[in-house]
Nucleic acid binder design. Structure first.
Length: 442
DNA sequence: TCTGGGGTCCTAGGACCC
DNA sequence: TCTGGGGTCCTAGGACCC
């Protein structure tokens, strides 16, 4: 692999959500900080200091307080509007620096660097690191290698050892083998917690030991996915480069802050999620042919009767219309819900997604006039909500869920709990246009 | 008292057909 | 009572990611 000229670079925000918060609250620097999931349920991001204390990812917040009663930890509710805005700025800087760009998640992107050697790649990485830090205040780490899996491993080194100055490059076989021996097997991208016990029982505890087996053995002992990871670690690029493709399924789901046992309250929630799915569909210019809903009781409560169910329906004509999808979801809910159970979580999933422009209408259902009207209504709602803040206008079955409590959410006990939220310095709820006031009265 | 949310891909097994 | 075999398609569930 020596002398290669095409590299993958992964750019990964350090402790993303915590770093977003710190940009606007510098007093949080050098303190143990955690960011919590919806309803302040679990820890979803930790600062370096919080990790050092032993606070684990996904740990329930109440348990963290129990286990670390004396620790000086700042806990914050998640503020996704802020994180989306901040990471969007980071990503646009990366895109400028590398045209071959694939956003992988909210805080991570891959790029392809062509026609460069290892030294030039390293220089590119250090430059983009300082550009991003200066431009946004976000610390990032960069891993560069001939495959994505190796780039991810390099990125871990960049994060862990200050000597790399936030950018680690694997550009020779010697470096690759040396690195693999230092990577614990559970840190390998693609090796999850289910595979771990088996690998450990076979004496495989580092990426190096795994990579030293034959591909035939890996294939017969595991599966095609694990074999691909093996190839990647051995320098063969085999994970396809996903362009920003439209999503094949879209899901909106929430855990409620309290159990819900009445149909009307549950329907309001499901209508919210259905409307959100429709909005996401329109945003990627798609329509969906299938709508599913699921509801679940609290499986942690062994003292309560349990019920969980998923139901689906096919629309006569694929749609992204809020009203159509909300109606379909509400019908499903009627069949799904059972008396005598308290539900804790619900969600709506739309699948069989296709392009809006290439839509295949059903011969008997398709009514062009009706669809044009629905489309115009949704377009108008989307425009107003984009301009004035999301959920300025919603349809009647729904309820407001605006986290600042300015909408009707304040009057409903089912609004998501975000007690510890920070202000939104980049996307302000607080001074939206006066139109919003009137809109709430519709 | 308090336990997240949103995706992707693969596989095994059932349904169905000839 | 006996009750094939092979192919395809679909779905649920598992595993992984952040």
């Amino acid at each position: 692999m020596d002398g290669i000229t095409t590299f993958y670079a992964v750019i990964d925000c350090d402790n993303c959500f915590v770093s977003c918060e710190r940009v606007f609250r510098p007093e949080l620097e050098r303190r143990a900080v955690v960011v919590l999931s919806n309803n302040d349920g679990c820890v979803v991001a930790r600062s370096r200091e919080a990790k050092a204390l032993g606070i684990r990812m996904g740990m329930p917040y109440y348990q963290m307080r129990q286990d670390f009663p004396e620790a000086d930890v700042v806990a914050l509710s998640s503020n996704y509007e802020l994180y989306a805005d901040m990471t969007g700025r980071v990503m646009s800087l990366v895109r400028k620096a590398a045209p071959d760009f694939m956003r992988y998640s909210i805080d991570e992107a891959f790029c392809i660097l062509r026609g460069v050697d290892g030294d030039e790649a390293k220089k590119w990485g250090e430059e983009i690191h300082s550009t991003i830090l200066k431009g946004t205040g976000m610390p990032v780490s960069i891993g560069i290698a001939p495959t994505k899996t190796l780039a991810k491993a390099a990125c871990r080194f960049a994060k862990k050892y200050p000597g790399y100055r936030s950018c680690c490059v694997i550009d020779t076989d010697e470096k690759r083998l040396k690195a693999l021996d230092l990577v614990p097997i559970d840190d390998v991208w693609g090796i999850g917690r289910r595979l771990l016990p088996r690998l450990r029982s076979l004496g495989i505890d580092t990426a190096g030991k795994f990579a030293a087996h034959t591909p035939q053995w890996v294939r017969s002992s595991f599966n095609i996915v694990t074999e691909r990871t093996w190839k990647e670690l051995n320098g063969t690029d085999c994970i396809p480069n996903e362009r920003v493709a439209p999503k094949k399924s879209i899901c909106t789901s929430r855990t409620f802050p309290h159990l819900i046992d009445d149909y009307t309250s549950l329907r309001t929630q499901v209508a919210n999620y259905a409307a959100k799915c429709a909005e996401k569909l329109r945003k990627q210019n798609s329509v969906a042919a299938t709508v599913s809903i699921f509801i679940e009781t609290n499986h942690f409560r062994e003292d309560l009767p349990q019920h969980s169910v998923m139901l689906r329906t096919t629309l006569p004509t694929p749609s992204a219309a809020t009203i159509t999808i909300v109606e379909a979801a509400a019908r499903l809910l009627r069949d799904a819900m059972r008396q005598g159970y308290s539900y804790r979580r619900a969600g709506v999933i739309v699948t069989d997604i296709s392009d809006y422009d290439g839509m295949q209408p059903d011969l008997f259902d398709y009514n062009p006039e009706k669809y044009t009207k629905l489309r115009r209504l949704d377009d108008a709602m989307d425009r107003i909500n984009r301009l004035c803040g999301s959920e300025t206008i919603v349809i009647g079955t729904r309820q407001y869920t605006r986290p600042d409590g300015k909408g009707k959410a304040a009057r409903f006990s089912t609004a998501i709990r975000r007690d510890l939220i920070s202000p939104c310095p980049t996307t302000r709820w607080t001074d939206i246009l006066p139109l919003n006031k009137n809109a709430e009265d519709i």
